[in-house]
Structures are given as structure tokens and as C-alpha cells.
Computed example of a mutant assay.
Amino acid sequence: MKLFNQVTGSDLKFSEDIDVADKLRKKLLGKRYLIVLDDVWDTTTWDDLTRPFPEGEKGIRILLTTRQQKVAFHGKCNTDPLNLRLLRPEESWELLEKRAFGEESCPDELLNVGKEIAENCKGLPLVADLIAGVIAGREKTKSVWLEIRNNLNSFILKSEVDVMKVIELSYDHLPHHLKPCLIYLASFPKDRAMDKDELKRCWHAEGLVEQTGMKSVEEVMEVYFDNLISSSLVIAFNEIGDEATCQIHDLVHDFCLLKAREEYLFGRVSSSGPYSSSHLMPRTVNIDDDKEHFDLNNFILFSSKMKRHLCSLMITGNEMEDLLSDASHLRNLRLLRVLTLLPCL
């Protein structure tokens, strides 16, 4: 009924006696039109919405946007779906500049910091648009723009359109078995491309994937990986060949960390930072090593509670593996299945 009213300019109320699809089809018969169906989530919805529109008639176009590849391919007609890429830094800057200054050019003193802000949007159009709105409504001075650059995430989260809610909508539409696989990606550091094969080995070791039906575990993991790519939450690089990698956007990474803490799936701690071993008992722990402040006697990894729960350990640091080896503490982690040592970038 809402679609009918939008197309016809009517204000009809819903009634079971009205065949809305047939009424809309008759209303549009013989006319030229463009229909935009935005953010369609499943193929059934597409089929229901497009039933009133005759196929193959000239002058008729339907534009579909979706976050699901299967919906895009289901709805395609003569051409393949267009996969929208991330914005390049210069494109993000063009958007920011237009929103902030209209037809005028950015002053020279704001140019460098403005381009740094654009770079920090990491190519996500929604983020670029939100920050452009923040910039447009504030004083155009270098001190203000530096504040925005240094506190980008806080400005995003305070915006009227909550980016996390947009991400959560995509997350909620994932099948239940894919959610922990997505969250696990946040156990890797931000801005680090993840090797596809390494990721699948971790999934398998963590027990996140099981053999189903006639498919092997390897085949199931491949399906899981493809489905996460299809959801648009995961970005794939070099999909063909031996160097296949993937990555998640910084904001998706933040979202997954929040979910991980809610579900006690994993935690991130620093060797020098504060912690509470009384409540931190996840299956997976990521450690950011700071050798200068490393204290073997009070480090969280070696608490008795951690030894009883820890299944996966990822350490980021250039020196910490030597300290662990010398201390011989890893042998006490009896449930440990995955150990990953990553050098600092």
C-alpha cells in the first residue's frame, strides 16, 4: 500500500478487499516510469514488489539497491549487478569540500587537514557523508577541523544517523551460524588484510564450522566466506589464486568488538594496560605487546582463570614471543588450539 501511494500520489488505507498489486498495474499500464526499490533484503520481497510491473515493456526501468548479492542477481534483467566500490580518498574529499564550501574552493590553510579527514573516512560513503554534514555545520577554522580529525569516531557516533545501527541491520540479517565467524574477524588488528586460508584454519580450530550433509568442512568454510562477502560486511581482495585476503572496515571492526564483549567471545588487552581478570574470561584473547611495561608477574594471560578458558591467543608485538618462550607459560594453557604471533606494523 505504501508503494502504491508513493507511485500514485494517493492516500489509501490498507484493506483486505483491495488487490493493491493489480490496482497499481492498471494505474501504470502504458506509462513510462522509473521505480526505485531501495535496500531490499530478500528475493521474496523483490518478487512481491515487482509483480505489478510488466516485464519487457519499453520506457520502464526498476532500480534495485541491496546489500545482498543473491538479491541483486535474482533481480537482474539484462545486465549484471553493479558492485559499488569504496570511495577513493580524492572522491571523499570532493564530497567533503562540496558540502562545506558549496561552489567555492577550500582555503589553503584547511586543505591538508581536510584531506586527512577524507582519508580517515576509509572510503565508506556513509561516513564521508556524515562527516561532511558535521564539517558543514561548524566553524571553518583549522583548530575545529583538527578536532574533527582527531576525534572522528566520536563525531560519527554522535551523528543523527547512527552508523552502528546501519551495520547492526546487516548483522541481524546474517544467519545465526555466520555471526560468530564475522565477529572473529575483529580478533585481527584493524587495517590488516587477513589471509583467507589462515582465517579458515582459525574458524575450524575454534569449532565455528562443522561438516554438514555431503559437504566437507573445507567446502562449508568456503560457503561461509562467500556468504560474508555477499553480505557486504567483508571486503575481499585477490579472490582468485593463492593470495586471497579479506578485510573489514574500521567501523565494522568496532561493531564486532562490541558484540564480542557482549558474547564473551574474545577480549583485547594490552600488556601495560589495566584489566580485570575477574570478569575477562573469553575463549579468545588478543594481546598488544608493550615490552617496556611488560610485567610477567601480574600479566592477565597467566591468571588461573585464563588458563582454564583460553582456546585462542593472538599476540601483536615484535618481542613478546621471546618472553613467553623463556617463561614456558604457554604449556599451561591446556585448551589452547590457536596461537598467532603477529609483528607490529
Rank of each mutant, 00 (worst) to 15 (best):
2 K>M: 03
4 F>L: 10
9 G>M: 05
10 S>T: 12
13 K>M: 04
18 I>H: 03
18 I>G: 01
18 I>F: 04
18 I>L: 08
24 L>H: 05
25 R>N: 05
26 K>N: 11
27 K>F: 15
32 R>Y: 03
34 L>R: 06
37 L>A: 05
38 D>F: 03
40 V>P: 02
42 D>T: 06
45 T>V: 14
48 D>S: 14
51 R>M: 07
57 E>T: 10
63 L>C: 06
67 R>Q: 09
72 A>F: 01
76 K>T: 03
79 T>K: 11
80 D>N: 14
86 L>N: 08
88 R>W: 08
93 W>E: 04
99 R>V: 04
100 A>I: 02
104 E>S: 14
106 C>S: 03
113 V>S: 03
116 E>A: 11
117 I>L: 06
119 E>M: 03
122 K>R: 14
126 L>T: 09
132 A>Q: 12
133 G>F: 02
137 G>K: 15
138 R>Y: 02
138 R>T: 12
141 T>A: 10
142 K>P: 00
142 K>I: 13
144 V>S: 13
146 L>Q: 15
150 N>V: 00
153 N>R: 12
155 F>D: 03
165 K>C: 05
168 E>Y: 07
169 L>R: 14
176 H>Y: 06
178 L>A: 06
182 L>F: 12
182 L>R: 13
190 K>M: 12
200 K>V: 10
201 R>F: 02
206 E>F: 01
206 E>V: 01
208 L>A: 04
208 L>V: 07
209 V>L: 06
212 T>S: 05
212 T>R: 08
214 M>S: 10
215 K>M: 05
216 S>N: 04
217 V>H: 01
224 Y>A: 08
225 F>G: 02
229 I>R: 14
231 S>I: 02
239 E>Q: 14
243 E>C: 07
244 A>N: 06
244 A>Q: 08
244 A>G: 07
245 T>R: 15
247 Q>M: 11
248 I>E: 08
248 I>Y: 08
251 L>P: 06
253 H>R: 11
258 L>E: 13
259 K>E: 15
259 K>T: 07
259 K>G: 08
272 S>W: 01
274 P>E: 11
278 S>P: 00
279 H>R: 04
283 R>G: 11
284 T>M: 10
284 T>E: 04
286 N>L: 11
287 I>M: 09
290 D>L: 00
292 E>F: 02
292 E>V: 09
292 E>P: 00
293 H>M: 05
301 L>Q: 09
307 K>E: 11
311 C>W: 03
311 C>K: 15
311 C>P: 00
312 S>I: 05
314 M>K: 15
316 T>R: 15
318 N>V: 03
319 E>P: 02
320 M>N: 06
320 M>L: 15
323 L>T: 08
327 A>D: 10
327 A>L: 03
327 A>H: 15
328 S>Q: 14
328 S>E: 12
329 H>L: 07
331 R>S: 13
332 N>I: 00
337 R>W: 00
338 V>D: 07
338 V>I: 11
340 T>H: 09
342 L>T: 12
342 L>F: 07
344 C>S: 15
